[in-house]
């Protein structure tokens, strides 16, 4: 994991998916990969998170699970969500 606030290619792809799914007013490239998605930061609520989870499952075949012990970490930023998706992709 890097400290950079520049999106990687995969992060950019995920940012696009999030913006498109939720019809957000921000540009995908403007999402800080290290800023929180939920609550403050991007200001998403739990319905938005559900919508993201459904889209991620459709696009990447990765299921986000409610009982995952690392959920706080996984949902903490675009970067950590992307890391989780990449780790579980095709698994």
């Amino acid at each position: 994991m890097t400290d950079s606030n520049i999106q990687s290619a995969q992060e950019a792809e995920l940012a696009c998916l999030i913006v498109k799914t939720l019809n957000l007013e921000v540009e995908a490239v403007e999402i800080d990969p290290q800023a929180p998605l939920y609550g403050e930061g991007l200001g998403l609520d739990s319905i938005d998170m559900l919508e993201i989870a459904l889209a991620v499952s459709q696009q990447f075949g990765v299921k986000l699970r409610a009982d995952d012990k690392n959920n706080i970490q996984i949902f903490s930023s675009l970067r950590s969500l992307n890391t989780y998706i990449q780790q579980n992709r095709g698994a």
Binding site: S46, M49, L50, A53, A66
Partner: peptide, 13 residues
């Protein structure tokens, strides 16, 4: 409770 990002994923499951 609705206070967590995964609250509604619980509902879906």
């Amino acid at each position: 409770g609705l206070g967590r990002p995964e609250s509604l994923i619980t509902v879906a499951e």
